[in-house]
Amino acid sequence: MEENKKETGQEKSQEEMVKEAVEEAKKAAADQENAETDKEETAEGQEEAKEEDVKEGEDTEETQQEKQGDKKFFGRKNKKDKKDEKIEELTDKLTRQMAEFDNFRKRTEKEKSQMYEVGAKDIIEKILPVVDNFERGLAAVAEEDKEHPFMQGMDKVYKQLMTTLDEIGVKPIEAVGQEFNPDFHNAVMHVENENFGENMVAEEFQKGYTYRDSVVRHSMVKVAN
């Protein structure tokens, strides 16, 4: 009996040892699998990191190349060609010359107009004494002689002369009954007269004329009050 118990105890211990050995083998295999898995994952992570680094490096190189290309592009754009500079220079010169010519043309036209005005006024001043003599001569004719053909002819010549002067812009200055204006009237006498208001033209000694809104000859007048 004791021998059977010893054998049974030995068998149990052997079985337990086998089980423990099997379990240890399983654990070892599992640990090995886990270690291999970790290695594979680590290797994959390293490869992915390398690929990302490579991509970033490529992106960086591409970015640098683009920046360099942009710099070159903008650099070329900012730097003008000699032909373009010459064209701009000639265009600016032509524009300035055209502006100067336009100013010269306007100035010349203005000077011609002023010269024409001065020349016309000079001629009108020389004609006005003839008009004065016509008026004095017609005013001195007696009433019974005004119907004479010669006097009627002279009156028509006078009216034609005044019509021509009016057409070119020569107008007589209104004087009698108007307020004295030194721009148009030349006062040579002063009189106190209740029939006229203050500073009014009472009489005209010589008729004045304007040419295109400028005075050719002032009216010679007598001023009342």
Rank of each mutant, 00 (worst) to 15 (best):
E56N: 10
G57R: 14
G57C: 05
G57A: 15
E58D: 14
E58W: 12
D59L: 15
T60M: 01
T60Q: 02
E61L: 12
T63K: 10
T63E: 05
Q64G: 13
Q64K: 10
Q64A: 15
K67W: 12
D70N: 10
D70I: 12
K71H: 08
F73A: 15
F74M: 12
R76M: 02
K77R: 07
N78A: 11
K79I: 01
K79D: 03
K80V: 10
D84V: 10
E85R: 04
K86V: 04
I87Y: 03
I87Q: 04
E88H: 04
E88M: 09
E88Q: 13
E89K: 14
E89P: 02
T91N: 06
D92S: 08
D92I: 12
D92R: 11
K93R: 10
L94S: 12
L94E: 10
R96M: 12
M98E: 09
M98R: 12
A99F: 09
E100G: 05
F101H: 06
N103I: 09
R105P: 00
K106A: 14
K110V: 15
K110G: 04
K110L: 13
E111C: 08
K112T: 10
S113W: 06
Q114T: 08
Q114N: 12
M115K: 11
Y116F: 13
Y116M: 12
E117P: 00
V118S: 14
I123Q: 06
I127L: 15
I127A: 08
I127E: 02
P129I: 05
V131D: 02
V131L: 11
D132P: 00
E135L: 09
R136T: 14
G137C: 07
L138E: 01
A139C: 02
A140V: 12
A140H: 09
A140T: 12
A140S: 13
V141Y: 04
E143M: 06
E143C: 03
E144F: 03
E147S: 13
E147P: 00
H148F: 08
P149W: 01
F150Y: 14
F150H: 09
M151L: 06
M151F: 11
Q152A: 09
Q152D: 01
Q152E: 07
G153T: 03
G153W: 06
K156W: 05
K156E: 07
K159G: 00
Q160F: 09
M162A: 07
L165S: 04
D166C: 02
E167C: 05
V170F: 11
V170G: 07
P172C: 02
I173W: 03
E174Y: 00
E174H: 07
E174Q: 13
A175E: 02
V176K: 14
G177D: 05
G177M: 12
Q178L: 07
N181I: 15
D183L: 08
F184A: 04
F184Q: 01
H185G: 02
H185D: 03
N186I: 02
N186G: 05
N186C: 05
A187R: 03
V188S: 02
H190W: 06
V191Q: 00
E192Y: 00
F196V: 01
E198I: 05
E198A: 06
N199I: 03
M200I: 15
M200E: 07
V201W: 03
A202V: 08
